[in-house]
Simulated scan of single mutants.
Amino acid sequence: MDAYAQLQQCLAEFHQGWNERREYKIRTSGGLEIRVEAIRHPSLIRQLNTFQGRVTARAERGAPNGPGSRPPSSLDALELLHEINTALTAWQPVTVCESADPDDTRACLRAFRDLRRRARWLLGYDPPTTLLDGHVCDHCGGALRVATDWSTDIRCAGHPDTPPCGTEYSRWQLAVDHIKELIP
């Protein structure tokens, strides 16, 4: 899939929503059966508009014996909506023109992938991630990304100018390799 098609697919999550495939197992009289369901999620923008996150501890603090004011919920969603709107305005010529400069299209795709990742993290679909220092992808030499709590496998994050190659590494294998280096 070319960069423009990937960009349109990414933008569709912001405006139209997306389908997610979920597999689950159920025990039947015939044994264990694997079933699949498709879940339709509303658009990220709609979800961010109605997001009622929790107030951070910092926002809850105030004067111990005085009146105070705090927001009814986290302002993170509002800030992210503003960033999305700013990006849509700034990248509008690229998002509507398939014949835009390929470098601009890839830069636009990176910007919206980052916004999508942040929105999905804020809404609870994905765990927060961080880049893994000292390691690169064996296939393309790109950076590697993992959940901050190590609850996901490690994935290629690509280079600043290229998308990820799709390679995944077992988080457990990295731990085993690290332990083997420590044992003489």
Rank of each mutant, 00 (worst) to 15 (best):
V94G: 02
A38T: 12
R171Q: 14
D76L: 14
A107W: 00
A143R: 14
L144P: 03
Y169I: 01
D161A: 08
P72E: 14
E79H: 11
P71E: 04
G134P: 02
L115C: 03
A107C: 08
R120I: 04
W121V: 15
H82N: 15
T95M: 13
P163C: 06
R54S: 15
R113W: 12
G142E: 01
A111F: 03
R117P: 00
N49D: 05
V55R: 10
A77E: 10
G158K: 06
P127W: 00
C140F: 07
E79D: 13
L80I: 05
L174V: 03
A147D: 08
H82G: 15
S99M: 10
T162H: 15
A111Y: 04
R155H: 15
A59Y: 06
T56C: 11
A100C: 14
I84G: 00
R58Q: 10
V55G: 05
A147K: 04
I45N: 09
D104V: 03
T152Y: 04
D177E: 13
T152Q: 09
R155M: 14
E60T: 08
D103W: 03
C156F: 11
L78T: 13
G158V: 10
E168A: 13
L122Q: 08
R106F: 08
D126Y: 09
H82Y: 07
L48P: 02
V146T: 09
V55T: 10
R40D: 06
P93D: 06
T162M: 13
T129C: 10
A90E: 07
Q52L: 14
A90N: 08
P102G: 06
C140L: 01
A157E: 06
L48C: 04
G53M: 12
C137K: 00
D138Y: 00
A143H: 15
L88D: 03
Q173T: 10
A90I: 06
T162F: 03
C108H: 10
S73R: 06
C165S: 02
S99E: 15
R118W: 03
T95K: 12
V146H: 05
T129V: 05
D126I: 03
L174S: 03
S73H: 12
E168I: 15
T148A: 12
S69I: 12
P127H: 04
L123S: 14
P127T: 06
L144E: 04
A90P: 00
L81F: 08
R46K: 14
G142A: 09
G166C: 00
H41W: 09
V94S: 03
H135C: 08
R46E: 15
L123P: 11
V96F: 14
A59F: 01
T105D: 10
L123A: 11
N85R: 13
G158A: 07
T167H: 11
R120Y: 00
Q92S: 13
L144D: 02
E168H: 14
F112I: 12
D153W: 01
R155D: 10
I179A: 08
E60F: 08
S73W: 13
L115E: 06
H178M: 01
G68V: 04
Y125V: 04
D114I: 13
A107F: 11
L132G: 01
N49W: 09
W91K: 01
E83L: 14
A57C: 01
R155T: 12
T162Y: 10
